[in-house]
């Protein structure tokens, strides 16, 4: 069966190979490299809004350690659902929040991504060897409604790369 010229081009075999390669690349990319995540909820406002799409790089943390300040995906169970939070403190850090201001080892942290800020209070706590402190960018919501705290290295899938806002 010969496909029309506008669909298959002048060389059907070459077109078919190109399509197969593109499909394979897309499969490998979204299965093993980029994890698409749709934003749900207000905890990362204004960085990530409801229904924004962001892509998480699954390979980064296989090649390097997580970095303070990155927006990261935290795995829930098998990974079909994830938390997207900001990694603000690393193992060994002494983290505290006073009147909404984050401090690491008693030094206030500049957070330009935080637009909304309520007077949150978190007593100083030193993180253990496998504890990473994650919190959303929306610090204007009630603290008790905001999922924040420590997670483990094994649950950190990777950093956010690009997004569709």
């Amino acid at each position: 069966m010969r496909l029309p010229l506008w669909l298959a081009g002048t060389n059907q075999r070459r077109t078919a190979i190109r399509v197969a390669v593109l499909i394979s690349l897309a499969f490998v990319t979204f299965a093993y490299v980029l994890l698409p995540v749709r934003g749900v909820g207000p905890s990362m406002t204004p960085t990530i809004q409801q229904d924004d799409i962001v892509f998480v790089n699954r390979l980064s943390y296989k090649l390097r350690e997580p970095r303070r300040g990155e927006v990261v995906a935290v795995r829930i169970a098998g990974g079909s659902a994830v938390y997207v939070k900001r990694l603000v403190a690393m193992p060994g850090d002494r983290v505290a929040i006073e009147n909404g201001i984050l401090s690491i080892d008693a030094v206030p942290v500049e957070e330009p991504y935080v637009v909304y800020r309520a007077p949150w209070q978190l007593r100083p706590t030193t993180l253990g060897p496998d504890e990473y402190f994650v919190v959303g960018d929306n610090r204007g919501m009630p603290m008790e409604l905001h999922d924040m705290g420590t997670t483990t290295r094994a649950r950190l899938i990777g950093p956010k790369t690009v997004g569709i806002y």
Binding site: V74, R75, A77, T125, V134, T150
Partner: peptide
């Protein structure tokens, strides 16, 4: 429940 993010206050 298994908490993926452990709240600090309950530690």
């Amino acid at each position: 429940l298994v908490r993926a993010i452990q709240p600090m206050d309950t530690r």
